[in-house]
Amino acid sequence: MTYLFIILYAVTLIYFALSERVKKFIWLLAIQGSILFGIVFFSLNKIEVFDFVFILIETILVKSIIVPWFLNKVRRHNHLKREHEPSIPVFYSIIVVVISLLLSFILSSQLNDNQIHTKYFTVAFASILFGVYFIIIHKNIFSHVVGYLIIENGIFLLSLAVGSVMPMMVNLAILLDVLMGVLVLGIFINQVGDTFKSVEIDQLSNLKD
């Protein structure tokens, strides 16, 4: 069952590359959050109450409800509808995402470390690679935050790959990171939108030598 969700996660990455509407990004983030919940739910063998509550809060509540809801608010505040043409055509982005998926699957099959659950490593690595790529190709600071969240989702999966040995504190740290990151970044997006009347990165180029 875990594989099902992992495959679905890979498919969401492809749709990230394909879509050009800001609203769709937010939807995809929400879907990724639910997929993460599914992965954790079906992969934890002996689930404790505390763990369960934590995972519920982290994935369902934060990743698939609060964060998308907040991003949607930011989107409406700044009247964002359609992402302008990314600097690299979508056609190549899809090829990049496929290559990164293939790469990370091959890499995970090469890893024969007993301490790491390579099935999570596959999409985790692809997600991080793609998140960085996503930030690079988009010229809009809202999309940069979306890219950052894709990276964070990848990191969440990576921490699953490391296994149950991770201290709770680290999980809490990720949760804080996402929540604070999104809230603060979102507030700053609104500031930028109000000050510059646009959230294109071209606006932010006064500081240079």
Binding site: I7, A10, V11, I14, I94, V97, V98, L101, L102, F105
Partner: peptide, 8 residues
């Protein structure tokens, strides 16, 4: 791309 996912 989806076909590649099937392949994987």
């Amino acid at each position: 791309a989806i076909a590649v996912v099937i392949f994987l």
